[in-house]
Design a protein around this nucleic acid. Structure first.
Length: 120
DNA sequence: ACTTTGACTATAA
DNA sequence: GTTATAGCCAAAG
């Protein structure tokens, strides 16, 4: 068993994505690795594609590729572009690419410490 | 059941 | 530094 089903995988991705602090971003591969499915970065994107009709909403705009490029911007609503939401949180975006990526990058393993601390 | 595609990543040239 | 190719896993056609 222990096989990560599609729905469980999506839930794991959503849960971790919701833990991303405001003004920070992360990568698909980092999320995939944190949930135990390293190398399945593409599945993270697939899961996030379904997040729009999920409740509560998932801040998918904080998830970008390893290059800091907003590859999923085209999947966002025209009224709330990915870049616009990132800029609203203080993240500078130029040509669909995040500026100072290292400065705003957030590693999901930080969430593990937070959750562990919360359980105490 | 097989083939193609996808919000990716790493390595090689 | 960039560009090209391979590896990756699962869903959709």
């Amino acid at each position: 068993m222990s096989k990560l089903a599609g729905d469980e995988f999506k839930q794991a991705v959503y849960d971790l994505t919701r833990l991303i602090p405001c003004g920070r971003v992360t990568s698909y591969g980092a999320i995939a690795r944190c949930i135990g499915s390293a190398g399945s970065a593409r599945r993270v994107g697939w899961a996030l594609n379904q997040c729009f009709h999920e409740t509560p909403p998932v801040p998918a705009h904080r998830v970008v590729n390893r290059n800091g490029l907003l590859t999923g911007a085209v999947h966002f609503s025209s009224e709330a572009p990915m870049a616009d939401q990132l800029e609203a949180e203080g993240v500078h975006v130029v040509e669909n690419q995040i500026v100072n990526l290292e400065r705003v990058f957030w590693e999901p393993w930080t969430a593990a410490e937070l959750m562990d601390n919360a359980e105490l």
